[in-house]
Structures are given as C-alpha cells and as structure tokens.
C-alpha cells in the first residue's frame, strides 16, 4: 500500500473503524517503515479533527467521538513503542488535570473535553467527579500539570470552581497554572468574575482555548 493510502486509511479508521482495524493499520505503518509521527499527524489526527468538527456541528454524537478516540489510542499502542525506540518524541501541548468539582457528580461534559484534549495532543489526567478543591490542587502539584480544567454543572457547585482558584492564590501558586472552566451554567462572565484564565463553551472550544493559553505562556 502506498504511503498516502495508508495515511488516508488511518484517518478513515479513526472515524468509522474498529480498534482492531486501527491496530492492523498501525502495524502496516511499522512494516512499511513509515515515520510514525507523520502517521499520527497526517493520519490519525486528521481523522480526529474530522470527527471533532462533525461533533461540533451536530452531525456526530458522543458515541462516535469516543469510538474515534478509542481507535486513535489503539493505533497509538502500536506506534508509541516504535517512536520511543527511534528516540523520537510525540510533541505535546502540555499536561491537563481535569475534573468535576466538589459536590457535583456529573461527568459527560467533562468526559468529552478530556477525550478531545487527549486526542488533540495534550497529556490528560482525569480525576473524575466530586473532587475537593485541595485534592485537585495536590494532584496538579503531583503531576506537574500545566492546565487545571474544572467542570461544574450546577449553580450550587459553581462556587467550588472559585474555591479552587482562591485556594491556589492563598497557597501562592496561582501563577503556576492555567485554570479553565466549563459546564452548563458556567459562562465567560463567571470566568471573569472568579479570575479563571478562560471559559470553554464546548469541547472543541476548550481545546482551542488550552492551546492558545499554552502558546501565550511559552
């Protein structure tokens, strides 16, 4: 198979293939001695961008997005050891710690943002739901996060987003982190009021925001 064909198929398998098919194609990349980084950038990531845009426009839904992410990661299982062996490195935009704040057990929106960040070139650590503010900060310190992404889906849990930011300030480490927020009742006005670095209206917007803020930091 030609290189261009493999790259095209990699994009296609992310969109509507299976994990086994993604792994098989990734093995073809290795067998044909193609550059695995090129396979990611020109193949797998292209597929994720297409499905991400479809999701954003309402032409695809969460199952398609998550299946695409699973296919992407399945191919990475094959490609990553080769990249390591060649002493190359997958360039990452940064490390994101994401979680839903204390008192809030909603997860879908946060899961989507985590998934899209992951397949868009961020290292993502997902803390799940109902996280006390200090636990979030301790985890951010432990993993050396660049970005803290906080989700809140209820008006009564929005104050916990503020609490994380206030606690970071009290601890004198606010400037170490980019803090972005999201969730149904959250908006830019709230982000401004509590001193967040940004607000992502959707998963795609959150990724663009995180990339933009990381670029400015550098």
């Amino acid at each position: 198979m030609e290189k261009s064909q493999i790259l095209e198929k990699l994009a296609a398998v992310v969109i509507d293939g299976t994990e086994d098919e993604a792994k098989a194609l990734a093995r073809e990349v290795v067998t044909n001695k193609l550059d695995p980084l090129e396979a990611i950038e020109q193949g797998l990531s292209k597929g994720m961008t297409i499905i991400g845009n479809r999701f954003e426009s309402g032409d695809a839904y969460l199952p398609e997005l998550l299946m695409a992410a699973a296919n992407f990661n399945a191919a990475m299982v094959v490609l990553k050891p080769v990249i390591d062996e060649q002493k190359k490195k997958v360039e990452k935009f940064g490390k994101v710690l994401i979680g839903t704040v204390k008192g809030d057990v909603h997860s879908i929106g946060k899961d989507i943002v985590a998934s899209v960040l992951d397949t868009s070139g961020f290292d993502v650590v997902d803390m799940g739901v109902d996280n006390p503010s200090l636990s979030i900060i301790e985890e951010a310190e432990k993993i050396k996060a660049d970005v803290i992404a906080l989700s809140s889906v209820m008006t009564t849990t929005m104050p916990a987003q503020k609490e994380v930011i206030d606690t970071l300030k009290e601890m004198g480490i606010r400037q170490k982190y980019i803090v972005i927020i999201g969730g149904g009742p959250v908006n830019q006005e709230w982000a401004d009021r509590i001193g967040a670095d940004g607000y992502g209206k959707s998963a795609i917007a959150a990724v663009a925001l995180a990339k933009d803020l990381m670029a400015k930091r550098k």
Partner: peptide, 14 residues
Amino acid sequence: PALDSIRGITVAAG
C-alpha cells in the same frame, strides 16, 4: 426555587 445565597453567603453544595 433553590436559594442562591443566604445573608449574602453563596450556597455551595454539601
């Protein structure tokens, strides 16, 4: 309705 605050103190879950 749910109360947003009492005596000016924001209501936080839990």
